[in-house]
Simulated assay, not measured.
Amino acid sequence: MEAKSGYVHRRMPLIAAGIILGLGLNGFFDGILLHQILQWHHMLSSTRPLTTTSNIDLNMVWDGLFHAFDWILTVVGIVLLWRAGGRDDVPWSSKTFVGSLLIGAGLFNLVEGTIDHQILGIHHVKPGPNQLAWDVGFLILGALLVVLGWLMLQTKVRNQE
């Protein structure tokens, strides 16, 4: 057990970098795909529909703030990854890194989907018919990404014992 916990502890800088990067990158993916390309929703589209120029402007500002937050997360993740890469005691593993990215991406869906879609109701994945199904699917995808990432981390730990 000592070898396992020591190995897990040494991987934490790489895991933290992957999770933060996963959060930021999935935020960008969400903003670019759902907000801009598909235009399914914007940050405040349920509370401020895109029916007036002032609402369009307000949603654009909030989408920009959302992207700025994603950018900050991504920069922090890169700094953490850089620091982890410079340490001799951190085992470098693609499986650990990808698993951590998946956990971060899944956490993004779970946190953003729960807060923005369910609690605040400021927007939904795809408003209109079946919007609850789209919102639940977003949460299920997030949970699956977290579980898949966690399984990848566990597999690596077993291989190192």
Rank of each mutant, 00 (worst) to 15 (best):
G6R: 15
F66M: 09
F66C: 11
Q118M: 13
P127I: 01
P127F: 04
F29M: 00
V146Q: 01
I119W: 10
D57M: 11
F97Q: 01
I115Q: 02
K95A: 13
A68C: 09
G31N: 12
H123M: 04
L151M: 14
A143Y: 04
P91Q: 01
Y7F: 15
G149W: 09
H117I: 04
N26Y: 15
N159V: 06
H42C: 08
V111E: 13
L145G: 00
I119L: 15
M43C: 00
Y7I: 03
S94Y: 09
T96C: 05
Q131F: 10
H124C: 04
N130Y: 13
L102N: 07
L44W: 11
I56D: 08
L148M: 12
I115G: 00
W92T: 06
E161Y: 09
W40H: 10
L107D: 05
G31I: 08
G31P: 07
T51V: 07
W40G: 01
T96I: 11
V90K: 07
I115E: 01
F138H: 11
L73V: 04
H117F: 08
F69Q: 14
G104K: 05
S46M: 06
S5K: 12
G142D: 11
V98I: 15
G18S: 11
V8D: 03
H41S: 00
I20P: 08
T47R: 11
G18L: 12
R83K: 15
G18T: 08
L132W: 13
T74Q: 12
H9Q: 10
D135I: 08
V157C: 10
V147Y: 12
A68W: 00
A105M: 13
F108G: 04
G128I: 08
T114G: 15
H41P: 03
M43Y: 07
T51I: 03
M60V: 02
I15P: 03
D57S: 08
N55P: 04
G85S: 12
L34N: 06
A133Q: 14
G77I: 03
H123T: 04
A68H: 05
I15D: 07
L81T: 03
L153C: 10
R158V: 13
L80T: 02
Q36R: 14
F29H: 06
R11C: 15
P91M: 03
A3Y: 05
V61T: 14
P127S: 02
K126F: 01
Q118W: 14
Q118R: 13
V125Q: 02
L44H: 05
F29Q: 09
V90T: 11
G77V: 02
V75K: 07
N130W: 10
M1S: 14
S54F: 01
Q160G: 00
L23E: 06
L141R: 10
L23T: 05
V61R: 06
R83L: 15
S94V: 13
S94D: 12
T155Y: 06
F28Y: 15
T51M: 05
K156V: 12
G18M: 09
H9T: 07
N59R: 03
I122A: 08
I15V: 15
T155D: 14
I122Q: 01
L101I: 06
V76I: 15
D89N: 01
L73T: 05
V136W: 12
G77A: 10
A84Y: 06
T53H: 04
N55F: 12
G6W: 00
T47D: 05
P13H: 02
W82V: 14
W62C: 10
Q131T: 08
D57A: 15
S45Y: 00
R10I: 03
D116T: 11
A17L: 02
A84R: 10
I78N: 00
V111Y: 07
S100L: 10
G31S: 06
